[in-house]
Design a binder for these strands. Structure first.
Lengths: 203, 203
DNA sequence: GTCTATATTAGGATAGAC
DNA sequence: GTCTATCCTAATATAGAC
């Protein structure tokens, strides 16, 4: 049975997420959030005492999605390259489902890194295990040697950057052709996987 | 002879650039810009009638740096891979000199893509020639085939993303060790060049 | 819980003296 | 050109009725 009438708090959270993602903390207006939620500003403040509190509440939820615990895939005992491909697939699936995440996260992290750090700590996100797994694969000679952080950042950059830069890409690289840009993004999964695999292959 | 007393307009521009880069258009305050320039708000408005006009003036200068005409390197008649390496070097040199560019550009482009588009058009930045050069190299079998946009975006992502994400990287990947993060960034040039060359090599 | 009305403050912009 | 003082609107936040 569908909950036709979602409660007010949910409506606020949905509206706030939408507006904060579009405008960022500084650009967002409480009025706009209230409008999008179909309520008024006073009620907004009744549920969340201040804009900052509301933003923090939303941010926590967003970060959970934006910093997925990909380590689950990496710790399985499959072949390393297989796991890597699975991780890239999983990460891009998230990005396609939430294409505005990268721009939002990069925007807000430069505004105030500490908010992120606090939440990341609370989530117990720790990449050391992943780095260790990568180093082990290198030691076994399965992939070429480099500082594991470089490999991780390379992969994340390849995945994330195009989403953050989509407006420029659409204009500069595809003459504002949205269809062509969509097609480009559809191809990213295969492109990135091949690009990465080729670059780490031991010759 | 040194111009000890730089004129007011310069002071304003320097201050505005600094504040806009740190806070973005939405987060910046005219008061803060005035303070940093050592003048008052009224004088700010005397030189630039509005915040938006001031921002546009700064943005134009920033974009000139952020979107360099790398095509100059690419059109020379050197070997394609040589040119590619030169282009990556040149681009990273710019980023090291202006490490806050990526975060700023990605932030503002998501706020209002049109401002960028206007300025890019005015600068006559057109990547078609670069795409053509890449495709020719592919046709000659010098590098592996793919849509040239993918190669360009991959390279830019590898270069730009770490700068935009530096606060997260420093915390998550290096336990807030600034020295280790600096070292990581120093290594990027060599890492990216090798990463890209390996991935486009024809086997 | 939800609303209308209002307080309060912040921030962009202008007037006018010098 | 530069300042002080002030205006004006937008935006966050609260009071109080229902």
């Amino acid at each position: 049975m569908i909950d036709k009438k979602e409660n007010t708090e949910e409506k606020i959270i949905d509206a706030a997420r939408s507006v904060f993602i579009k405008k960022g903390m500084d650009g967002a207006r409480m009025q706009e959030i209230a409008d999008e939620a179909g309520i008024n500003k006073a009620l907004l403040h009744y549920y969340f005492r201040s804009k900052e509190k509301l933003f923090d509440a939303i941010l926590g939820k967003i970060i959970k999605v934006a910093f997925p615990k990909i380590s689950g895939i990496m710790v399985s005992d499959a072949d390393f390259k297989t796991k890597l491909v699975q991780a890239i697939d999983a990460y891009l699936d998230i990005l396609f489902k939430h294409p505005y995440l990268p721009a939002f996260v990069l925007k807000e992290v430069s505004r105030d890194p500490n908010v992120f750090i606090k939440i990341i700590v609370k989530r117990g996100l720790n990449p050391k295990l992943v780095f260790k797994i990568i180093e082990d694969a290198m030691d076994r000679g399965e992939i070429v040697k480099m500082k594991p952080q470089h490999l991780v950042i390379n992969i994340i950059g390849l995945c994330v950057f195009p989403f953050a830069a989509r407006p420029i890409i659409e204009f500069v690289a595809f003459d504002e052709d949205k269809k062509a840009t969509d097609q480009f993004f559809k191809e990213r999964k295969a492109v990135i996987k091949e690009f990465v695999l080729r670059s780490i292959e031991v010759k």
